[in-house]
């Protein structure tokens, strides 16, 4: 579904990705692991069009999308939940969700709003509230719900567990798995490797801008190096 070929990306002066190649197949959850600064976030930002690669190609199905502006990439069915959530603090919960559906003109937007409320009933309770007043967990739900309103084929999730209490993290990951079962392919960036590998089918490990390891979640979970570096053993 999504293929990155030998991507070289500069974020300002920094050579952030050095020849990154990876693939995501339809229906999968793929985890992208690595330490801070390894290039995980840069990878997502390049896919969604916030950054343009200097070299290399990105294909969604058969369409080349590298360098396409972000507001056009969304229309092709890729929604990105960015690092730090980046919800619109001064907009209400409903307005945030409706912005997620900005490009859609079909009649099913209202139905998808209901679907988001089924996934996150808390959002429905807070529908008229200004988003900046939500708790951290609610803001994360809103960020994911907003991305779902685009009805994406592929969802890019950047650190959904960041800053959340363990019990909330588990809840969010269950919902992510749910979203995947309902047919959305997911590329997941996560510091919490154990959590990520528990729901992912496959994974890639990034180190200083390059893929150093890849395989099924089970193989990665058994890998001695991964266990030492990312699972804290």
């Amino acid at each position: 579904m999504l293929r990155l070929d030998a991507l070289d990306v500069y974020d300002g002066e920094i050579h952030a990705l050095k020849g990154v190649s990876l693939e995501v197949h339809r229906g999968e959850i793929v985890a992208l692991l690595g330490n801070n600064g390894a290039g995980k976030t840069t990878t997502l930002r390049t896919i969604s069009g916030l950054l343009a690669p200097r070299r290399g190609a990105i294909h969604l199905e058969d369409q080349a999308i590298a360098g396409m502006p972000a507001h056009e990439v969304v229309g092709l069915g890729i929604a990105h939940v960015p690092e730090g959530r980046r919800i619109f603090n001064r907009l209400t919960v409903r307005e945030n969700l409706m912005m997620g559906a900005f490009l859609r003109k079909d009649a099913e937007v209202a139905g998808d709003l209901e679907r988001v409320f089924t996934l996150f009933p808390r959002l429905q309770e807070r529908i008229t509230q200004v988003a900046g007043t939500l708790s951290g967990g609610e803001q994360q739900m809103l960020a994911i719900g907003r991305a779902l309103m685009a009805r994406p084929r592929l969802l890019l999730l950047d650190e959904p567990s960041m800053g959340l209490a363990p019990v909330l993290v588990e809840q969010i990951f269950e919902t992510v798995a749910d979203i995947n079962r309902q047919g959305t392919t997911i590329l997941l960036v996560e510091q919490n490797a154990a959590m990520a590998l528990s729901i992912a089918g496959r994974g890639y490990v990034l180190e200083t801008g390059a893929v150093v390891l890849s395989g099924t979640a089970a193989t990665l979970g058994d890998d001695a190096e991964v266990r030492r570096a990312y699972l804290g053993e």
Partner: peptide, 24 residues
């Protein structure tokens, strides 16, 4: 209006707005 909401979204966070499909 939707247009007005998109203006407020851009005012708050241009990158996040472009991820919504808004042409900044």
């Amino acid at each position: 209006t939707k247009v007005g909401t998109s203006m407020r979204a851009v005012a708050e966070d241009q990158a996040a707005a472009s991820l919504m499909g808004i042409n900044v």
